[in-house]
């Protein structure tokens, strides 16, 4: 028997090694979980990108779809003065809803209905105009201030790489949901998906933010990022969905009087 040449042996060895390596399962490159401080920083970035140091006004379209019911649609204007935590949501359309609105000052949320000329104090969980949207969906992002984050995993959301993090409400802070999970786009830090949980751990809502608007703010002297579209899926009443579309955003300063009850009342007189 003729002995194989050194070259042939080397070739066999190379092929064998390559085959053995190929048969091994792929070993993932470990993703270093961000430290707690990094996570807080991430939340601060989310808040900072959305925050405008001056005033904010947007024209929004709200649509609520409910099983076995006709759709609920509104056009509303949202006024925000983040510096003093003030918010006004006023419905403009349909005509029967025009003039109704909400005013949030400090931690108080009030609802006004011009057809009865009355104000009512409402809770954080108020369903805005009977939809699945809540005050926080229209307000300034205060995630870092309200929640403590923990890292869950690095995941994929469609074609995007995201950081999945879990937020738990800080003690003594009144929020709509005590536990929230966020999926943050690794490239932009934009929130792409959010799930809200009740204290019992029950999933209440899943929200998607598929697109953001970037707008230069003269008062902030930087860009402000606003979700162009918000899609809320009710996880309790399956089949109910709310879509919010920011139709226009204006970052010019607003009149002080807007954030008062008298102003909202006066608009309907």
């Amino acid at each position: 028997m003729k002995m194989p040449s050194k070259l042939a042996l080397l070739a066999w060895f190379a092929v064998g090694t390559a085959g053995a390596l190929a048969s091994l399962p792929a070993i993932p490159v470990a993703y270093a979980a961000p430290a707690a401080a990094e996570l807080v920083k991430m939340l601060q970035t989310v808040d900072d990108r959305a925050r405008n140091s001056g005033d904010y006004k947007s024209l929004v379209y709200i649509e609520q779809k409910e099983k076995d019911k006709s759709d609920l649609v509104y056009q509303a204007v949202v006024y925000r003065r983040d510096e003093t935590d003030k918010l006004v949501i006023m419905f403009l359309k349909p005509q029967s809803e025009a003039g109704k609105g909400y005013l949030r000052v400090d931690k108080n949320l009030f609802m006004y209905d011009p057809s009865v000329g009355r104000w009512e104090r409402r809770t954080e969980r108020e369903r805005i105009g009977g939809t699945d949207s809540q005050r926080a969906d229209f307000d300034e992002s205060r995630l870092a201030e309200e929640y403590t984050p923990t890292f869950v995993a690095e995941e994929a959301l469609g074609k995007y790489k995201v950081n999945h993090i879990k937020l738990t409400a800080k003690e003594g802070i009144d929020v709509s949901y005590p536990v929230v999970e966020l999926w943050l786009d690794q490239g932009t830090t934009n929130v792409l998906k959010r799930q809200d949980f009740a204290l019992s751990g029950r999933l209440m809502r899943t929200t998607y933010y598929p697109e953001y608007m970037k707008q230069y703010s003269p008062s902030k002297k930087a860009d402000v990022y606003t979700p162009k579209e918000i899609r809320i899926f009710d996880e309790v009443e399956k089949g109910n969905t709310t879509t919010i579309v920011m139709q226009s955003v204006d970052l010019n300063s607003l009149d002080d009087s807007i954030f008062t009850k008298a102003w909202l009342e006066s608009k309907s007189r």
Partner: peptide, 11 residues
């Protein structure tokens, strides 16, 4: 827009 259409100012 006409906002006052539905308003009765509580009357």
């Amino acid at each position: 827009l006409t906002l006052g259409a539905a308003a009765t100012a509580g009357a």
